[in-house]
Nucleic acid binder design. Structure first.
Length: 306
DNA sequence: TTCCAGGAGAGAG
DNA sequence: CTCTCTCATGGA
């Protein structure tokens, strides 16, 4: 099956920018599990070639996948709105086509609970072991993978079995969240209907979901582009490039939202991935890109800073 | 050995 | 409100 006219889209940057932990590149094709089936996707120009382990109805599958990959949203327009300085301009230019996924909600909740105080390779390993242990075996040709465990599967297991997958102290957070979904105390279907502030607040009622994880869920699953997950990297980036001083999360949030506007989630993702792709992100040459623009940036953000 | 990773919670001040 | 300490794990 093919998806045509995927313009201003990069499969590589979209799937390798730390928002999903489930995709593996083999040669030029990405293999992953979405919605209980294995997908194999490769990009040739503006065409995506897709294979599925399930029998797909093209009339529903193509729109589903376009939504998952955020194709169809006018991302160039959003990027134009956050393109406020030479530094951001370079990030957009280098990572052109990167989009923010709309991932399945339960998987995103569970994955980012596991992400706290952890690194991407380890998070991927934990999720892989949880899926092997509690998910359903799937095959596409000779490729084998496992569906993400259902809330029920994780709610009815023991904490020791979760620990055996490498979750560490996050095991109880994960199991409690699974139980809350099963009991209906955390109503995922209704969270999907909520505007950003309510969705975030509802998610943060769970033990193990703080502000950053809630923002990741809002951004990477629910399409709330005004969400700004502040991890150690985003804090470092804003302190180094824009605020040029030690800053609290509140100050960073205030500045970023004023400076970048409604598309701050997209701006954040380009900055986050850029500094990972380019380890020299804060060298003299890079700092010179933004130096002339900083006073403007601070000025634009000042109304929110005091 | 220590430090770090897409942090959060509990407690103290 | 902010600051500090701890939490399990493995790779650098």
């Amino acid at each position: 099956m093919q998806i045509r006219n995927a313009t201003d889209f990069s499969l590589k940057y979209t799937l390798e920018s730390g928002q999903s932990f489930r995709w593996t590149r083999i040669d030029d094709a990405y293999h992953g599990v979405v919605g209980g089936r294995i997908l194999k996707i490769c990009q040739i120009g503006t065409t995506l070639c897709v294979e599925s382990s399930a029998t797909e109805d093209e009339t529903t599958f193509v729109p589903f996948l376009r939504h998952y990959l955020d194709i169809g949203r006018d991302v160039p327009k959003i990027l134009a709105e956050v393109d406020n300085d030479a530094y951001m301009h370079r990030a957009i230019e280098k990572l052109w086509g990167m989009r923010i996924l709309n991932q399945e909600l339960w998987e995103t909740v569970a994955s980012f609970i596991l992400s706290q105080n952890n690194n991407v390779p380890r998070i991927r390993g934990i999720i892989r072991r949880l899926s092997e242990r509690f998910g359903e075996r799937l095959t596409l040709a000779r490729y084998v993978d496992y569906s993400f465990p259902t809330p029920d599967a994780l709610a009815t297991t023991t904490e020791d079995e979760l620990l055996a997958c490498g979750t560490g102290y996050r095991a109880s957070y994960l199991r409690d969240a699974a139980r809350a979904v099963v009991s209906g105390e955390l109503a995922l279907a209704s969270v999907k209907q909520m505007p950003y502030p309510e969705a975030k607040r509802e998610l943060m009622r769970r033990n193990g979901i703080g502000e950053k994880v809630a923002d990741c869920i809002c951004l990477f699953s629910l399409g709330h582009l005004e969400a700004l997950p502040i991890d150690v990297w985003i804090k470092r980036i804003f302190e180094t490039l824009y605020l040029r001083r030690r800053a609290t999360h509140h100050e960073i949030r205030d500045f970023a939202h004023t400076y970048f506007g409604e598309g701050v989630g997209y701006a954040q993702q380009y900055l986050f991935h850029y500094v990972h792709e380019y380890p020299d992100w804060a060298d003299a040459e890079h700092l010179s890109l933004i130096k002339a623009d900083v006073p403007t940036a601070i000025e634009n953000g000042k109304s929110a800073l005091n």
